[in-house]
Design a protein around this nucleic acid. Structure first.
Lengths: 228, 228
DNA sequence: CTTTTGCTGATTGTCAACAGTTTAAGATCC
DNA sequence: GGATCTTAAACTGTTGACAATCAGCAAAAG
């Protein structure tokens, strides 16, 4: 029972109003309740959350630094809008980081971890067979998260998570299009294969390509940037 | 002359006290005036800078998100201390990002850019010949900055700059050891060569290796992490 | 002598109010 | 009718004050 108390205290310890609000805003952005370009009204937010403007402002300065909002002096904070060029740049970086993750993981992966990853792929297969995009997405997410987690570079994992959060700022919300489910999972299978084979270069290349293909799919067959 | 006024207004426009203070603190960390683990006293800082605690706190929340400080509830903000493991992780990420920068640049580099990079290498050669570490360092910095800038991915450049700032949190301050000057510039020459040859894969690999060698040099011949 | 308990000063977390700027509506002029 | 100036409301930037919490020290208990 002391575990509950401990964890509760631990939570209370690291959570000021500022951090709670920042987390809440992050989730609102992730859920799409705050759309790109929208302005945050400090007074309204303060009233709605039952706190004063101080913690709100501090939370916003944190969000600014992590790229989720823009702050314009004397005008307010705006949910950042990712244009095509910025999204393309982000995908490029993401590809490089996933390539690194793949190389790292393939050189230290355990059999248990391979089994877990394999389970995610199976989940996605099932979702695909059922044509259920809503259950495909979380499997996809956990597959990618697990790869960077298992890679052992904690900072890399944090960086990938931050980039993923930032991707939600893209106006075109379909991060993975329905039509790509099948081919995407084929790519997952190749990635898994090469990780299981302890082939760092191969796994890295497969992951890198996987991300770059997503980017191409997002930007359409022509590959040009929208509104850039 | 309107340029002066404009730029002054532009500065005033985008600069609240918060952003000025954040920038000031970043520079203090970079100059080593604030050493790792040290605690920031809000009252003292506010008094010294002639402002109230509000902007100071907002600036610190920004620094927290960019990883330069740790904030502990009810105890204050502490200059973050990078232990060996975290530094190693950061070098790994940095290597991957520079690899990407090299591949990007080699595929789009202009002759003028090659000339500029070549100039930096020459500067470093001169500094090396004079045994002047103090003039080697800025050349080195500009060489690396230029590579990511010329690569055309603005976000990548920002990310590399952020990582570079964060590296200053390492307790062992010699980011590039004197003994490495000669071999380091040899590596620079190889990098430049491959960029000039429009060889993306080669340039990327050379840059990646360059960073990983720096990491190895920092951690000593044994390659183990200090205090990790 | 060691440990615990209860203060005291200092410091952080939060709030409410004031000052300056922006925005937008209304009035005025062409 | 449309454009421009005026003015007031709304909002952000900043400040100072108050409440809550923490570190350190002294006194008391074992």
């Amino acid at each position: 029972m002391s575990l509950d108390i401990d964890s509760a205290l631990q939570l209370r310890r690291n959570q000021s109003l500022t951090s709670i609000i920042r987390h809440e805003l992050e989730q609102m952005i992730e859920r799409g309740e705050l759309s790109a370009g929208e302005r945050l009204n400090e007074n309204a937010l303060a009233a709605r959350l039952g706190v004063s403007r101080g913690p709100i402002r501090e939370a916003c300065r944190g969000l600014e630094q992590s790229g989720l909002v823009n702050v314009v002096v004397n005008r307010g904070v705006f949910i950042r809008a990712l244009d095509g060029r910025e999204a393309a740049e982000l995908y490029e970086i993401r590809a490089a980081l996933y390539g690194l993750a793949g190389r790292l993981l393939a050189s230290i992966v355990t059999d248990e971890q391979v089994a877990i990853l394999s389970g995610y792929v199976a989940e996605m297969d099932a979702a695909m067979a059922a044509g259920d995009l809503n259950s495909f997405y979380p499997g996809n997410l956990r597959f990618h998260e697990a790869i960077v987690e298992f890679g052992g570079n904690g900072r890399l994992a944090a960086e990938c998570a931050a980039i993923h959060r930032e991707m939600h700022l893209l106006r075109r919300r379909t991060l993975d299009m329905p039509g790509r489910m099948a081919t995407s999972n084929d790519e997952h299978r190749v990635i898994l294969e090469r990780i299981a084979a302890r082939d760092p270069a191969g796994a890295g290349a497969a992951l890198e390509e996987h991300v770059l293909i997503s980017r191409a799919a997002l930007f359409g067959p022509l590959g040009h940037y929208p509104d850039a």
